[in-house]
Design a protein around this nucleic acid. Structure first.
Length: 432
RNA sequence: GGAGAGGUGGGUGAGUGGCUGAAACCAGUUCCCUGCUAAGGAACCGUACGUUAAUUCGUACCGAGGGUUCGAAUCCCUCCCUCUCCGCCA
């Protein structure tokens, strides 16, 4: 949610900034509603004031034993007028809320212009893509060369397409990756490990911005139209982690709050059919180790650099080639003000593919969640800034390891940092 | 799942129809006093929106949403959540 003051006082320039990221703000409608709101709110409050004053006088009269009948008569139609005004005002407010809830965040000045992923700008690279002495396979074929690995056929029997069953060393490596990531973030990067629910309510989804606009991307336990009790599977641990501070005022001394969690993520991915249908890249269920920071406003951009660095540290420790991109305005997510994507090199695809996305949401989510902190000496609590990033997507990291660590004989070397997590295993042998 | 008890400001916790935006205590802020420390005293101290020269005034908010009433934290209904006991269960 944007600061309502921006929409009242700087409507035109705000609309212009939104247009840069491809969002058309209906300025005229909003301005009209806003003007009407102001008038209506003032007149409603006036009516309420009148009612309060008169009711009070009735109370006093009654207490002193006077006849209250004439006073009651005087109140007369006030109630009806007030009800009508209240009804109109609440409809109006609901209309304004609906519009405001659907407005994306404003991009930071440093974010490059552009329409889609083709306009993202490369910031840096780690390693150069390795040369293979043989034709590198993609992860599906690499796995197929092992004794037992990724099993899409069984998953589709159990559930459907875009799910996977993992066996044996691959399942163990998947687990090892998550463990390694968690350990690194908690022991070296200062994050507190958190275990969170995988089902969340609508308030949480509204808080981080998945609702009301992106409900179709989620799995719901009940029809989404049903009011109130419907729970949804988390599309990312960002939702439960960030909402921990929803509706609360955090002590300044507690900031920055740095939290990490390993969870499965569930996405119905409505818009992506036909893309990445092969392999693990785009699944309805995947694991991710998420990083979330709750910080003071003045620290959020430094925190974005730091958090992105924490995700990079994982790739570096795994010795996987990657590049760091800054997303252009058109490719950023709904609530983001600035986003870095980390793209890992996949020899099987001869391409860099997204493996982490790190964003500074500024106060966009905090305003939706009413997540605030009280600065020492300040009279009013202030909205916190929230950040999140993948550190990393576990399934895609597994893909990257399988493809980058494949060997000529069909076996897969185990990255050094994972070996302690895999009982000292150094190589996943090829199928004999 | 069954029975009961509750949800009030940053925290604890009074308040059963009008003088309660809400006692008291704790925390916090400012000041006073005592040579440090400790203790003591006084004042201030919720959020949002509108309004104002102004912390001026107004409105709303006592889990959420409805209802009754001239008037609701207080009465009624629905929902959510917490606690205790029982049942079931990894």
């Amino acid at each position: 949610m944007l600061d309502p003051k921006l929409l009242r006082d700087d409507l035109a320039s705000t609309a212009q900034r939104l247009a840069a990221r491809g969002y058309t703000l209906d300025v005229d409608t909003l301005a009209t509603l806003e003007t009407r709101r102001k008038v209506l709110q003032a007149s409603t409050q006036e009516l309420q004031n009148e009612r309060n004053v008169r009711s009070k006088s009735i109370g006093k009269a009654k207490a002193s034993g006077e006849d209250i009948a004439p006073l009651l008569a005087k109140v007369g139609t006030l109630g009806e007028e007030l009800d009508a005004a209240k009804a109109e005002l609440s409809t109006l407010l609901a209309q304004i809320d609906t519009i405001c809830a659907g407005i994306p965040n404003l991009p930071h000045e440093s974010v490059p212009a552009g329409e889609d992923e083709n306009d993202n700008v490369e910031i840096s690279r780690f390693m150069t893509p390795p040369e293979f002495a043989f034709e590198p396979k993609d992860h599906v074929d690499v796995s197929a060369g092992l004794a037992n690995g990724l099993d899409f056929e069984t998953a589709s029997k159990l559930t459907g397409s875009r799910f996977v069953v993992m066996h044996s060393h691959i399942a163990a490596m998947h687990r090892a990756l998550a463990q390694f990531m968690l350990d690194t973030h908690t022991r070296q990067h200062g994050y507190a490990e958190v275990y969170v629910p995988y089902l969340v309510n609508h308030d949480s989804l509204f808080g981080t911005g998945q609702l009301p606009k992106f409900g179709a991307d989620l799995f719901h336990t009940q029809p989404a139209t049903e009011e109130g009790q419907s729970l949804s599977l988390i599309p990312t641990a960002e939702v439960p982690l960030t909402n921990i501070v929803r509706d609360s005022i955090v002590d300044e001394a507690q900031l920055p709050l740095k939290m990490t969690a390993h969870t499965p993520c569930f996405r119905s991915e409505a818009g992506s059919y036909g893309r990445d249908t092969r392999g693990l890249i785009r699944q309805h269920q995947f694991d991710k180790v998420e990083l979330v920071q709750i910080v003071k406003p003045e620290d959020s951009f430094a925190a974005l650099e730091e958090l992105t660095g924490h995700a990079e540290a994982i790739l570096q420790a795994l010795v996987l080639p990657y590049r760091k991109m800054v997303l252009c305005v058109g490719d950023m997510g709904f609530g983001a003000c600035k986003t870095y994507d980390l793209e890992v090199w996949l020899p099987g695809q001869q391409a860099y593919r997204e493996i982490s996305s790190c964003s500074n949401m500024q106060d966009f989510q905090a305003r939706r969640m009413q997540a605030r902190y009280r600065a020492k000496g300040a009279k009013k609590p202030d909205l916190v800034h929230t950040l999140n990033g993948s550190g990393l997507a576990v399934g895609r990291t597994l893909v990257a390891v399988l493809e980058n660590y494949q060997q000529a004989d069909g076996s897969v070397a185990v990255p050094e940092v994972l070996q302690p997590y895999m009982n000292g295993l150094t190589v996943i042998p090829a199928n004999a």
